[in-house]
Amino acid sequence: MTLFESAVRPVLFRLGGGDAEAAHEFTLARLARLPGPARAALRSRYGVDAPVEAFGVRFPNAVGLAAGMDKNGVALPAWPALGFGFVEVGTVTAHAQPGNDKPRLFRLRGSEAIINRMGFNNAGAAALAARLDQLGPIGVPLGISLGKSKVTPLEEAVDDYLTSHRLLHPYADYIAVNVSSPNTPGLRTLQDKDAIADLLTALVGPKPVLVKIAPDLSEPAVAELLEVCLSHGAAGVIATNTTLARDGIVAADRSRAGESGGLSGRPLTEKARKVVHFVHTETGGRLPIIGVGGVMDGDDAARLLDAGASLVQLYSGFIYRGPALVRAAARAAASSGAATGRTTGIR
């Protein structure tokens, strides 16, 4: 057991009477205030130099921070210090929005899982653009996840995404198109063939555009979506988002498992790996994949890479295991052959 798991995590999990969102905001605020010497010390402990290239971008290592952890980019300088080889901020929307009613973030500790129904709470694309303009480069590639504003009708979704894209693409090394969150009404219908084609037609440009997909789609639906990605210039796929299923929940967590929202963490490990494998096989490796979902140790990261991912991301695993997981996953990725300088998702 690491120091984080034995000493830091119990304190964080007790904050606010066990309020997961309060602990999240507390942690972000502390990370945002880390001074330069502290960041340097953390980087020397947790950093792993194992470069990998995907969709034309070179990454210091193959392990990134998933969208949702730092929606508004408030702690951006801290994440590379904790060992991450890239950071994805957001999901951000064209309009600032408060998200869904609280409580909306729940830990299922026995299952090493999290349920969230945040609803894209964020300060809006213009605010994020201003922050990134003031901050400048963070030393690792930056992905920006775009979603649809809740107030925007589905028939106006393309313009909504395009507004965010125009404001933010100058600051991004890649753009993630989030059409798979279960927490914005109707959003997942944008994974349909015609809808994703319209989005990609509008958004594909000089910066790589990746599509984030749900783990709950059938294989025929994923295959159809991948055809559109290939024919409309998507640079890659992020697999996967959270799931609406509740498989893999231990008995002690079943009462809380009834909360609505997307489930992440250990119960998603195998499902995410299977989706990554299907995407890789179906496309013949032509679409690089960022694998995300249930990475709780180095072996989980290695298995996602062996299934066909070029990169992996952490969210719930980082909540439960801390920065030691970033280092372990990056080392496992390097050992698995991820850090070979390849330029596609082919393995």
Rank of each mutant, 00 (worst) to 15 (best):
R131S: 12
V295I: 15
N183T: 01
G119T: 00
S111F: 12
V237A: 06
F4R: 07
H232L: 05
G36E: 15
K212R: 13
D192S: 15
A245L: 10
G261W: 01
V279Y: 03
V279R: 13
K102N: 02
D49K: 15
P170F: 05
S149M: 00
R266M: 10
L76Q: 03
G262Q: 08
I213A: 03
G298W: 09
I346K: 15
G136N: 11
P215V: 07
V326S: 05
I144W: 01
A328G: 06
T163G: 00
T242K: 09
Q134M: 09
I115N: 05
C229A: 15
D198M: 12
A32E: 12
G143I: 02
A50Y: 09
F318V: 04
I290Y: 13
T189Y: 03
R104N: 09
L314W: 06
T93Q: 04
P137L: 13
L76A: 11
P60A: 04
N122P: 00
S335Q: 15
I115E: 13
A78Q: 14
L65M: 14
G236P: 08
A40M: 14
L82I: 10
G236I: 11
H169Y: 14
E25T: 04
P182L: 11
L325I: 10
I175C: 02
L146C: 08
L105C: 10
R188Y: 13
G147Q: 00
H232G: 01
V57M: 09
G90F: 00
G308I: 04
P208I: 11
T93S: 08
L244A: 10
E53A: 15
